[in-house]
Simulated scan of single mutants.
Amino acid sequence: MDPHVLARARARVLGVPSVPVSEPVPPGTAGASDGARVWLLPEWPDGATPALLEEYETAPMPLERAGQARRVLAAALRCCWPRLDDLPWPGVRAAVADVLEVYATMTRGDAELARRWATGELRRLSDTGWLLLDEAAGTVRPGPRVALWPEGSLASLRDLLHRLPPPPRRGSTGEDDHE
């Protein structure tokens, strides 16, 4: 069996699994390491469109409320990517409360309702590998899919994040904290 097909099938069933860095990265996957673990992401053929990814049930973004999911991801990146000249992966941990605060300042209307909706989006983004959410600790950081963004695609994202409200100072868990 083609290792790429097998990797895509595993991703559909398991999500984005991780292994210790000491284990080899299986064929058909790209490894995104943060030093302690390696997340196994399926490799897609060049030119794979969102429609193709959706057909394989591995959409690049949760599509229920794609606009809202992108805004929540942007708020999380604003908090978890403090040095925009660096790469976004592995990023730093940020308090979920800080991400929700940044998101609430980006929206109109009821701020508490916005926070509740954003909490659901954080969970969906975590389920799809865009974020790593630790609900027990109340923290979030960039997920392994972020590691696959090519450097050339980051300029417009950096520009966008510069325009978002800054995160509150109280919730960062430290820039060197990648676990």
Rank of each mutant, 00 (worst) to 15 (best):
D159A: 11
R78W: 14
V146Q: 00
H178L: 07
D46W: 09
R170H: 12
P27T: 13
E23C: 11
E101A: 14
V102E: 11
G174P: 02
A118F: 07
A104L: 15
P26H: 08
W117T: 15
G171Q: 11
L84I: 10
V16D: 04
P144G: 12
L73I: 03
E135S: 11
P27G: 11
G152W: 10
H178R: 14
G67M: 08
V140S: 00
D34P: 03
E23H: 08
P168V: 01
R10I: 01
L148C: 11
S172H: 09
W117S: 12
A59Q: 05
W89H: 03
P20V: 15
R83C: 10
A7D: 02
A69W: 06
A69M: 13
V5H: 09
A94Q: 02
W39Q: 00
P165G: 03
P82L: 05
V146L: 10
P62A: 08
A66L: 11
A111Q: 12
A36Q: 10
S22N: 07
T107P: 06
R123T: 12
L41T: 04
A30S: 12
H178G: 02
D177Q: 13
T105V: 10
R116A: 13
A76C: 06
V140I: 05
L53R: 15
W130F: 12
T119C: 04
L131C: 04
L100D: 04
A48D: 04
T107D: 11
W81I: 03
H162P: 01
A9F: 05
V92M: 12
A9V: 14
W39R: 13
E135C: 00
A118N: 03
V96E: 01
E101Y: 02
R116H: 08
L100Q: 07
S126M: 12
V16C: 09
S153M: 06
P62K: 11
L154D: 00
A155I: 06
G152H: 10
D85S: 12
P50Q: 03
P144M: 08
M1A: 14
A75V: 04
G152Y: 07
P45F: 03
P90E: 02
D34H: 12
V21K: 07
E151N: 04
L100F: 01
S153I: 07
H4T: 14
P27C: 07
P42A: 15
